[in-house]
Every structure is written in C-alpha cells, then in structure tokens.
Design a protein around this nucleic acid. Structure first.
Lengths: 354, 354
DNA sequence: TTGTACGCGTTATCAT
DNA sequence: ATGATAACGCGTACAA
C-alpha cells in the first residue's frame, strides 16, 4: 500500500513524453495560453492523470515567470497584537480582494526583533509587500524590501517619497465627531486615547508625554479633538479593548464633581468600555453621559446601543492597498490614496442634562 | 532621478564576476554552507553592495532547493469569518511558532466557492499545508494538496487515514463542565450551542436537526453535555459572538416559569452574551443563574466576572500543527495529537438558589 | 496547431 | 578554500 521511498514526482516533460507531444505543448495545455486541439489536450490530460501529475510545479513556474503570486503583509509584532484590532480583519479581507485580480495569496510576515525574521523579508518569494502601521522597525523592513526592488505600499504610515501610502483623515475625522458633541452643547469633554507609544502606559497625557508620543494615529486623532476642544484632558488606554475602556471610564467618571458630560474615545472598543463603566456607576447613556467612538466596527457586547462614531472604510483601505500593489505589478503607476471617515450618529450621544 | 526603464537586477553571477570569484563561491558566501576565507567573503560582499545585489533570488533558490519556506494555512470562507473566532488568533500564533524552526512563513489561503481559489491551492509555492476546521469543501482542498504530494496537517477535522490530525477532547470537556454544574446541584440546564451547519439557523435543536448537523465541534460538545444531562434542551446560536449569546439568553431567560438555573454555552463569547442577557433581566450571576462557557479566551466586556469554562490549549494546538508539519518536512514521521481542555472554575457558576 | 531551443538564477556535487 | 558543471522544472520566443 505504501509507496516506495521517493518515487520522483512526474514532471511536465514526463507527461509530454507519455502523451507523445513536446513539453511546450504540454505546458500550453496547462496554462491555456495558446489554442490546442481537443485531441492532444485530452491525450495530455490523460497522461497527466496516469502519472499522477497535478499541474506545473509552482516554484519552477515562479522562477520562469518571475512571479510567485504572493504578496507579503508585514505586521508589527505578534500576530495577536495585530489581529486584536478589529479593523485589521476587514482590512485584510479588502486586501485579499484587492489582489484577487492577480490571483495572489497573502503571506503573513512579522517584522520582529528576532534576527531571522529579517531574513524572512529577504528570502520570501513574494512579488510585493504591504506594510501596515508605522514603527521605527517598519522603516528597516521597508529598506530591505525596496532593495529587493519589490513594489511596496504602506497603510497608515509614512514611508518616504515614492512609496504609495494609504492614509486616513484621522485628525479631521476626530474633529468632526468633536464638533458633533460641541453642537450638542457639551463643554466638559474628555478624550480617551489609544496608546501613545510602545510602553503603553495608562493615564493622563501631559504635554511632555504628548511631545514624546510616537503613535501617529493617537497623536492625529487627539489633535483633531483639540482642534475643537483645545483644553480637553486626555487619558491614554494601554490598548484598544473594552476592558481598557472600562478602566479609563472608571477613572474618569468615578468622581461626580469632576465628571465630564461627554467622552470622545479613539476607538469603538474603548467607547464600549466607557459605556459599560458609566452604566456600572448608574449613569445613563446618553442622558447622563455622551460617548463617541472611532472606527465604525460592529461592537459585540454593548447591547442596544448604537455607537456614535466615525466610520472608517477599513475594507476599502485594504482593497485600495491591494489594488495599488496590483497596479505596480502590472507596471502601471500607483498613487497614494487618502480615505475619509464618515460620521455616524448613534444613540450614545445627546445634549447634556440641563 | 528616476532609474531607466528596466535595468536588469544584478544576479549572483554578476556579483561573482565583479568580485572575481566563481558563482559557487559567491553562492556559499550568502548561504554560509561552507567555509570561505574572510578575504574573498569581503570581496564578494563588496561587489554585491556595489551592484545593489540584495541576496539570492528566492524563487530561483526555491526551485533549486525544492523548498519555498512557506506553509499554507487553509481557512474556510472569508478571513473575517475565521478571525472572528477568538481562538483562531492564538492558534495562528502557535502555528507560526511551530514552524519557526523551518524559518517558514504563513500563507493565508481561503478555500472559497470561487473557482480560481482552487487554483491558489494548486499553484501556490508552498511546502506544506495546515487545514483548519472541516467542511465538505475541506475534503476537496485536501485532495488537491495531497495530489501535489504536500505534507498536510488538519486541525479539528477528520482528514482520513494518513493525515495527522490535531484534535480536542470536545465531548469529554463539555461533559466535565456539565458535571461541575451537576455537582453544584443544578437540574434545569440548557445548552447554547454554536451553529449546527452552514445555514446557521438560530433556535431550538430538535432531534431531526441534530441528526442533520454537520459541524463536528457543535455536535461533540452537545454530546458531552447530554452525557450528563440527557434531557437538556439545546438552543443554537447563529455564530460565536456576545450578541448572539444575548439573543439566545433572552429567548431562554425571558419566561420566569421555564427559566433554567444554569446555561452551558459552547463558547465563551456566547456565555458572555448570556450573562449580559441575564443581567438585563435583573438576574444576578451566579446567584440566580449559573453560566459556563468554553474556550478559555480572555473575554472583553464582561467586567468583573471570571467565566467558568473549559480552557482549550489553542496556542498549543497551533504550535503542535506547526511542529508536525516541520517534522514531515524533515522526513520524520508525524503523529496525530489529541489535546485536552482544562476546567477553570470562575465566578459565574454556583449552587442554585434554594 | 505543434515542436525546438534556450535560459530563468540558483545550489549541490565533485574535483581541485 | 575554491571552481567547473550540471541540474531544478518550466515558459516562451520563434520557427515549422
């Protein structure tokens, strides 16, 4: 029953010989690049079946065509860190769509501290790469990729000239939701932000701390809020999660004397946490407290509430990145694309109590 | 500033010529497979730098070595569907660890209805594949992969003889948590299950419906519960999420007359939703209602509660799959591995009120 | 419509 | 320690 040790797999030329045709004819049968008579096609297919040949060897084909059909997605740090953020998944889905025209797959790479991960970037047979986020490390990854001559697109990061970027109007969007709250009449407004840097420290963001912040998204969204509420305090969460939102919410809402009437969270998960904290404290949302988020994801676990938020086109961002990659691979010029968020009024914001 | 149209990239033999050595020597400088004198190494590296050569072409190297350094992970359906399940992420993290010894990357493939996705399975330059979950479609994917002669490992699915499987003691684990509840004295117990099939219909699971169910995990975990509570009703959720848990919880707990004293949910997310539904209705957990989950993930958004649950070793499952793949690629025999869940007592179960 | 010939860029073997 | 040589398996001009 068991096959003998290593019965070399059949190759295209084996099939061709068996079918009595040339290898180029056999090749064409599988690629469909040229017309082949039905008779010969059948003979080739039969021979292939007889030999257990399951199509051209992808590595050989890659070498020959100069294309592997693989696009790398470079994430920072552990996969879990990247996929904990709910916008990552629709983004990846969009990306797979965007490169679908290439028939390409997505190779997950992390640009880790570990040395041999650098080598993954240099040794992986990929046609192009998409970098997500923007750390110092990303810059190095970028250099490696560019020196390989690979097309690169960066999402939410600055990659220097010549590298197409997919960006979001974080500042303007944050300002928009702040203005919404302002129009409702709120004056006591606090921001709950994402992490300011890789230390992910919780707590009030002082001017000093803001000056040394490194996460662009956090900085930009806070700038947007302060375009509208220049004096608003800001509290940083350690991560984008409901539980972190709860922690921030408790800290903010515990003392009735200093309690804000509105909280602007930099992510929907944080907003959901703030709402939970408020409800724990017996506050009604939005009657006693208005809460707005950012992202426009489907938040699991806030029941009937519909979050007031800025909906970011996460899937479109991914798709755009994929499309630009596809263009570059076709030799067409690629462009940087800027996406804007859309305000969504929910049930979690209202005029402050008289 | 712009480079001319297509200045062919330097190859290894260009570098060798420039350095005045043979290509094989140059090759060895990059692979490190053999000793090279410092002098020649430096000359080669210099030449490489001068020519902008950034290392051996991965596709050519793949062809020559017969290895691409890529392991495919085949998920069912959209990425979002797969990554919505919180255990997927630690599993993927474990998997990347498991194949780290190969220096391999992970290629995401979906086995979609779309035809050209089948081709991704056949044309992707991968060394091995890991299938996750088990649908009818997975069976087809498996055939494709095996006919290519690729090592395959299946997680949570049945792949037929000769294919190493990574499995979980779903039935026994479900029985264990049921016994815990039984020991506490509960007699009115209801199960909230995952989807029974791809139609993902909500509602009571009749005997007929159970007979036609196709999702093994759901079937097995329910069997475990009924090993202890043969008569327990079961309600299916449409997906594993908090909101689905809320829906099921409301349906189950709305009528005080028929209200169970304990709910056994097939996932932690569902359990979290049931808890929320209970609290909405003014029930206290665990005083008025005991709720247990399954998975042992960190559930965001249930506040102080610590879920009573069966902790599944998700990361270990992934790592094991990766390790078996690595073994097969080294020509060593691979084995199926069975993992067991560990009971974790939380704060969400207690003896029923008198 | 089919066949001929060549090379894609490496790495492994073996000899030196 | 280094070099010559031969594949790896295929796609694609081009010719017939």
């Amino acid at each position: 029953m068991a096959a003998s040790s290593a019965p070399r797999r059949a190759t295209l030329s084996d099939v061709a010989r068996e079918a009595g045709v040339s290898t180029s004819t056999a090749s064409v049968v599988f690629s469909g690049k040229t017309k082949v008579s039905d008779a010969t096609r059948d003979r080739v297919l039969e021979a292939a079946a007889a030999l257990g040949y399951s199509g051209p060897d992808p590595m050989a084909a890659s070498l020959r065509r100069g294309r592997s059909g693989i696009v790398a997605v470079v994430l920072e740090g552990q996969l879990r860190a990247a996929f904990l953020d709910p916008v990552t998944i629709p983004m990846m889905d969009g990306l797979t769509d965007g490169i679908a025209s290439l028939g390409a797959g997505v190779l997950l790479l992390r640009d880790d501290p570990a040395d041999d991960e650098v080598s993954a970037l240099t040794t992986a047979p990929v046609d192009a790469a998409v970098l997500i986020g923007c750390s110092v490390r990303t810059r190095e990854s970028l250099d490696v990729l560019r020196s390989r001559g690979l097309p690169v697109v960066v999402i939410e990061g600055d990659a220097g000239e010549g590298v197409p970027r997919i960006t979001l109007d974080n500042r303007e969007a944050a300002a928009e939701v702040a203005r919404h709250v302002q129009l409702l009449g709120h004056t006591e407004v606090v921001a709950v932000t994402l992490a300011t840097d890789s230390r992910r420290e919780r707590g009030l963001i002082s001017a000093d701390r803001l000056a040394s912040a490194t996460v662009d998204v956090t900085i930009d969204r806070l700038a947007g809020i302060r375009d509208v509420y220049p004096e608003s305090p800001a509290v940083s969460a350690a991560a984008s999660s409901i539980d972190e939102g709860v922690i921030a919410g408790r800290a903010l809402l515990g003392d009735p004397a200093s309690r804000p009437t509105a909280v602007l969270a930099q992510s929907d998960l944080l907003a959901a946490g703030v709402i939970r904290a408020a409800e724990e404290l017996g506050l009604r949302v939005p009657e006693d407290l208005s809460v707005a988020g950012f992202d426009g994801i489907r938040v699991d676990g806030i029941g009937e509430h519909v979050l007031t938020t800025m909906v970011q086109p996460a899937m479109e961002k991914g798709r755009a990145a994929g499309e630009q990659v596809a263009r570059m691979l076709r030799g067409e010029p690629a462009a940087s694309l800027h996406f804007t968020c859309r305000f969504r009024a929910g049930t979690t914001t209202a005029a402050p109590a008289a």
